Amino acid sequence: MADADELLTVWASMAPPEGETWSLARPGPALDAVAARLSSVPRSFLDDDVSIRALSGDIAGAECASAAYADDARVRRGAAIGLWLLASEEIVEPFRPSLAGAWALRAVDSLGLRVAPVVDPLDWLADDERREEAARTFLLWAGFVPAGEDRATAQALWQARDSLRRSSALAEAYAAYEHREEIARRLAEARAREAAARYSSE
C-alpha cells in the first residue's frame, strides 16, 4: 500500500492548479443528488477483486490514472465509487447536466488519488460530511459547482470539508509539492517562449 504522500504527489503532478479549476467550474448537478448516488454504490464496485482498469475501460472507454495504483484498496475503492457515479447515469438516471465529459476521469482520479489517501472511501458511505466532501470534490474536478451555489460559496464549503486541509502535515507537504509543480510549469512556459523567440528571430 502506497503512503498518502506518494499518492497525493501523483495527484498533484497530474491535476491542474486548483484556482484554475475553480475559475472554469460551471453550474452542475445538485449536490444532494450526487451524494445520494454516491451512497448507493453497488457492492460489486467495492469488491476487492474489481479491476479498475477494466471498469474504467467499460464505463469511460479509457483508463483512469488511478488504475496504476489500484493495488491500494483505498485508491481502488475511491476510483470505483467515482466510476459508479459515471455509470449510474445510464443505470439509474442522468444527472442534469451530465457528469460525462472531458474531465470525467480526472474527477474519478480526484477521488482515488486525492481524497481516498486521506479518508477511507468506506467512510464516504457511512458519514454524511465525508460523503459531501467526496461529492463536492468529484464535482469540482469534473468542472462543476453544485447547482444553486456560486463559485465562492462552493469553494468555501468544499474547503471547510476538505480532509486534506484538515490534516496539517499532509496539507503542508501537498502545498509545497503543488508550489514546486507550478514553478516548474512556469519555467517550462518561459523556456518555450524563449525558444520560440529565438527560432522566430533566426
Rank of each mutant, 00 (worst) to 15 (best):
A116Q: 08
S40W: 04
E194T: 11
A184M: 11
A70W: 04
V119A: 09
A107P: 11
C64H: 08
S163P: 14
G57D: 06
V75Q: 01
R166V: 00
G101N: 07
A175Y: 03
R43M: 03
E149S: 05
L170F: 06
R114N: 01
A116G: 02
R130A: 14
G61T: 05
P42R: 05
S13N: 14
D58A: 14
R151H: 00
S39E: 06
G101A: 08
P97G: 10
Y199A: 15
R37P: 00
L85E: 10
H179Y: 12
Y177M: 12
A68K: 08
D47K: 03
D150C: 02
A87L: 12
P97V: 07
D49F: 12
E181N: 13
D162V: 02
A36E: 13
R180K: 12
E6K: 09
A70D: 12
V108I: 13
A176Y: 05
V145R: 07
A73R: 15
A142Q: 03
A87Y: 08
A190I: 11
G78R: 09
D109W: 05
A134H: 06
A36D: 11
P29Q: 04
R131K: 15
A160Y: 00
S163L: 02
S13T: 12
A160S: 13
T21G: 00
P97H: 03
L83E: 04
V50Y: 02
G148Q: 01
L55F: 08
D128N: 07
R130K: 12
A192F: 05
R166Y: 00
L55I: 09
P146H: 04
L139Y: 01
G82Y: 03
A190F: 06
A60Q: 10
A15R: 13
V119L: 10
Q155N: 05
A73S: 09
V108W: 07
E182G: 03
E133W: 10
E181R: 15
W141G: 00
R131G: 12
R131M: 08
D127Q: 06
D128L: 10
R185I: 02
R198Q: 13
A188R: 15
D49R: 15
P94Y: 08
Q159G: 01
A169H: 09
A190L: 14
D5V: 14
R53Q: 12
A33E: 15
R193K: 12
Y177W: 13
A12V: 05
A68H: 06
V118D: 01
T137L: 11
V118P: 02
Q155S: 11
D47L: 06
V10M: 01
S201T: 10
S201H: 13
A176L: 14
A35N: 06
R131Y: 00
E129D: 15
T21V: 13
E93Q: 14
E182P: 00
R96W: 13
R151I: 12
V108K: 10
I91C: 02
Q159A: 15
L85M: 05
